[in-house]
Design a protein around this nucleic acid. Structure first.
Length: 892
RNA sequence: GCCGGAGUGGCGAAACUGGUAGACGCGCCAGACUCAAAAUCUGGUUGGGGAAACUCAGUGUCGGUUCGAUUCCGACCUCCGGCACCA
């Protein structure tokens, strides 16, 4: 065995061994329990980053763990290959998006392989390939025919200079990122998927996903936003005092019908037809509505903009009181939600309150606090949260005294009786706009015929192939390719035009997990193999996907189920959301108060004698640099580390070990060069110890005493074995909880015991030959078991080194087939226990008792302890609490 | 603005979900080996007081429940993720 640990030579050798045996090829086998472990596939952005490494290491550990436990594991990999960055690269470097993408996937595939992942590469897919997206197009046409896809107009970010649609991320402070022009909203026709038809199921199925984090389910629940409320119709009147024109009503939706009697005005969105109609007669209003169109469509911007409004000069009557109320246009009313109009109750809604105050609109208190938080809403004072609480109706005529539920019911009943409203369930969730005015995406399989309208491309004519040899400038090249878009109508043969929009890239990532089951089928989207593998048993990815991607994928699964492609209701049984990878930043202020960032490799950090960071200097010039905050690794902050160079330097096992050890999966992971050194040190220590323990290679590591209790162990070795099994027990528990950081620490504890010669393993040279023999046998038996446990426990985390070391000590059984270690509960038994004694909850002493001691004995010993006595000072004992095996608390 | 998280030594974190706060690792300090350095090994390391035994304080802040709170409840502060065209 080599003396030193050389990951650069063992890792490629082990990877070649796996490849030569197809170790990770997954085959359907109904006799075996399957385990489908999936990490979110990467966007091929160029090179692997540490976020990828963390994601795929987590997935690989879970895959190998389940494989060791005997499951039939599938772990696939592919490429989320369509998307905006490819178009940006094309514009910047003049390469075609396809060529750029394929070159990136080649680089990243090589990098992924060097991590030693247990992936079935035969199932690799790329969403930009026609053999993938043809099935997406096929499903699109099915859903179109079922009415689950429809067309309507929706606002987009429009760059008036570049004459193009911008993504939200391309709008920076209200301006287009390239042109710098002020962005405006523009309505364009788009296709939508009817996700709202599944809103109720998407909401309720969350209750049947115990393997999902509560926080993700909470976010999805709130996103879907089911509310029970009331639709209220306000009859429109031409002038105050006039009779309403029949049938002309302004509809609003409210979750607070109990406050209807307090409505003092109605506000509509700028896009509302009533506002649009009023604007045709009023130039000032038209100008205001035009001003509302400035800026982008991102909700965060809309929600934080300064509240502004203008009266429309239109009026409505209150459906219950008949009072005349003004209609305002307000920029805080969103066109996309509810009816695009709200009844404003300034006394009991914070936004209405602020708006009423700004424009001196009346405030009517109609709810009384049930806990006397306020008497009357003070329109001149500050808003109080209590104003919005549920209470009892006051100043509301016949509804006075009713509580929230009773008032809502009574008012809804009255509205329904008058035909001016009804109870309604409303969702915050909106239908999914899937059209993108971009080139690098899946073509929408629709042909626009002047006679037949929108005709889906027949199955026999699929796929609609995206041409890959293009050059990009402003706008989609598809719109400039008549040879591509001119085509006869499949229905009537008339000259027609293909749709030149492409699909949102979230569509590809909504079903890839299923395609991995049937990646080579060119006759169908999925086949019976999908029934074997689905649902995914463990899905792993970033928390940033908690809502959109995961909700769309759940929706798509139900769509596929309803056309008979899959049989289960949900795609992902268990979900792990990993945190970000962050690192410190280093910078110098440059003239013009810009920051020049230094990479961690360029600086030396300085510490004081207590280990506190006192500063940093640039290695190149020796002068100081500022130590900045700890931020997500990014190009702009220059604080990223390159996984490839780390693997070249330390080996994949070290990178994997550190990534898992530094933090639990859900928390952000702070990069630390010295932490990597520590991980490397641990693996070296493991290697060196085994290399030096030559007798291990001569023994069968798996061969262990049939009866440990009957086996003569020295007391020190019995104690060592107890510690090893205690750590094993903790590690097995933590594997199940996915707390791999503490699994690693358990492995370190085990190695610490196995290498603590002074405490356990040094044989006293003064012993006679027979005793020496007995002690040596005792030690070796425990050591052999300990290493066999450690190597298998660590294998999912650091597979190359464990595979190699195991092969040296137990060459007849590969580690993958060696079985998973189990705890010997009898090894954990202790004869004496140390108990903590508290007086009034404060630690005052420790006592040692036999494990079998009775409660009375323990109490007596605790009270007799001299340390404890000092704090009792003869005071009477009020209460005595004994927690078995842990502590005694004496209350005086 | 709305929704969801996180905050514990010099640093990353742990605490078997109400029972000894700081496991494991990093860093730092001291020692061994070395001509020396690196590497490796051994010991120490929450803060204040004390020669020591020991003692007081301490898990973002303030309050509450409890014999006992990092853990449960209420209010607040700071940071992070998402907000429908980044993926």
């Amino acid at each position: 065995m080599e003396d030193t640990y050389q990951p650069q030579s063992i890792e490629p050798a082990v990877q070649a061994y796996w490849q030569s045996r197809n170790t990770f090829r997954a085959t359907e086998d109904p006799q075996r329990e399957k385990y489908y472990c999936l990490s979110m596939f990467p966007y091929p952005s160029g090179r692997l980053h540490m976020g990828h490494v963390r994601n795929y290491t987590l997935g690989d550990v879970m895959s190998r763990y389940q494989r060791m436990r005997g499951k039939n594991v599938l772990q696939p990999m592919g490429w989320d290959a369509f998307g905006l960055p490819a178009e940006n690269a094309a514009l910047q470097h003049g390469v075609a998006p396809a060529a750029w993408t394929y070159s990136n996937t080649d680089t990243m595939r090589t990098q992924l392989k060097s991590l030693g992942l247990a992936i079935d590469w035969e199932r690799e897919l790329a969403t930009c390939k026609p053999d993938y997206y043809r099935w997406e197009q096929w499903l699109f046409t099915r859903l179109f025919e079922k009415g689950l896809i429809y067309k309507k107009t929706a606002p987009v970010n429009w760059d008036p200079v570049d004459q193009t649609v911008l993504a939200n991320e391309q709008v920076i402070e209200g301006r287009g990122w390239r042109s710098g022009a002020l962005v405006e909203k523009r309505d364009i026709p788009m296709y939508f998927m009817r996700i709202t038809a599944y809103a109720d199921e998407l909401l309720h199925e969350l209750d049947h996903l115990p393997g999902w984090p509560e926080q993700v389910k909470a976010m999805q629940r709130n996103w879907i936003g089911r509310s029970e409320g009331c639709e209220v119709h306000f009859p429109v009147v031409p002038e105050p005092g006039h009779e309403p024109a029949t049938g002309d009503v302004l509809k609003v939706y409210t979750t607070r019908p109990d406050t209807l009697m307090g409505a003092t005005y109605v506000a509509v969105a700028a896009e509302h037809p009533l506002a649009q109609a009023a604007a045709r007669e009023q130039p000032a209003l038209a100008a205001f509505i035009e001003a509302c169109r400035r800026g982008g469509t991102a909700e965060a911007d809309l929600a934080t903009q300064v509240k502004q409004g203008m009266p429309t000069g239109r009026w409505v009557t209150h459906p219950l009181t008949g009072a005349t109320l003004p209609v305002w246009v307000a920029n805080y009313v969103l066109w996309g939600y509810g009816e695009g109009a709200v009844m404003a109750v300034p006394a009991h809604d914070e936004r209405d309150f602020a708006f009423a105050r700004q424009y001196a609109l009346p405030v009517r208190t109609v709810i009384a606090s049930t806990r006397d938080a306020y008497a009357t809403v003070d329109a001149a004072g500050d808003w109080q949260d209590a104003y919005a609480e549920h209470g009892r109706c006051v100043a509301s005529g016949v509804y006075d005294g009713l509580d929230f539920a009773a008032a809502c019911a009574a008012i809804a009943t009255d509205l329904e009786a008058r035909g001016l409203g009804q109870r309604r369930i409303q969702y915050r969730l909106r239908d999914w706009g899937i059209s993108r005015q971009r080139y690098w995406g899946c073509p929408i399989p629709i042909i626009h015929c002047p006679d037949c309208g929108d005709v889906p491309v027949p199955a026999g004519q699929l796929p609609v192939v995206l041409p890959e040899a293009v050059t990009l400038d402003v706008g989609s090249p598809l719109k400039k390719m008549p040879d591509w878009y001119q085509t006869p109508c499949p229905r009537c043969g008339t000259a027609a035009r293909r749709e030149t929009d492409t699909l949102d890239t979230f569509v590809e990532s909504s079903w890839y997990y299923a395609r991995y089951a049937s990646p080579d089928n060119d006759q169908a989207m999925l086949d019976e193999r999908a029934h074997y593998w689905l649902p995914v048993d463990q899905y792993i990815g970033g928390i940033e996907h908690a809502i959109l991607h995961l909700l769309y994928a759940r929706f798509f699964h139900k769509l596929m189920r309803d056309v008979g492609l899959v049989h289960c209701d949900e795609p992902f049984r268990n979900l792990l959301t990993q945190g970000m990878v962050v690192a410190p930043t280093f910078y110098r202020e440059t003239p013009g108060s810009k920051k020049h960032y230094f990479s961690p490799a360029e600086v030396d950090v300085r510490y004081d004698e207590r280990g506190r960071t006192v500063g940093a200097v640039c290695k190149a010039d020796g002068a100081a640099v500022e130590v900045g905050s700890i931020e997500k690794m990014s190009k702009s902050k220059n604080n990223g580390v390159d996984p490839e160079s780390l693997i070249n330097r330390y080996g994949a096992d070290t990178v994997r070990l550190f990534t898992l050890f530094a933090a639990p999966p859900e928390l952000s992971l702070e990069w630390s060069d010295s932490g990597v050194e520590g991980a490397s040190r641990f693996l070296k220590r493991l290697w060196n110890r085994l290399a030096q323990t030559e007798w291990l290679a001569e023994a069968n590591t798996l061969a262990q005493p049939a009866d440990w209790n009957g086996f003569p162990l020295e007391p020190a070795h019995r104690e060592a074995r107890r510690l090893i099994h205690a750590s094993l027990k903790q590690a097995l528990f933590d594997y199940e909880k996915h707390q791999f950081n503490t699994v690693v620490s358990a492995c370190m504890k085990i190695l610490n015991v196995l290498t603590d010669d002074k405490a356990y393993w040094t044989v006293d040279p003064g012993l006679d030959a027979a005793r020496t023999q007995a002690v040596t046998t005792s030690a070796r038996t425990v050591l052999r078991e300990g290493y066999s446990i450690l190597l298998r426990l660590l294998y999912p985390i650091a597979p190359h080194i464990c595979h190699t070391l195991w092969d040296r000590v137990t060459p007849d059984v590969p580690i993958l087939d060696a079985g998973w270690p189990g705890v010997d509960e009898t090894a954990l038994a202790q004869e004496t226990l140390e108990l903590v004694v508290q007086v009034n909850g404060k630690l005052r002493g420790k006592i040692s008792v036999e494990a079998t001691a009775a409660r009375e004995q323990i109490e007596a010993r605790a009270l007799a302890d001299t340390q404890v006595q000092r704090f009792l000072e003869g005071k009477p004992v009020k209460k005595l609490i004994v927690v078995p095996g842990k502590l005694i608390n004496i209350v005086v």
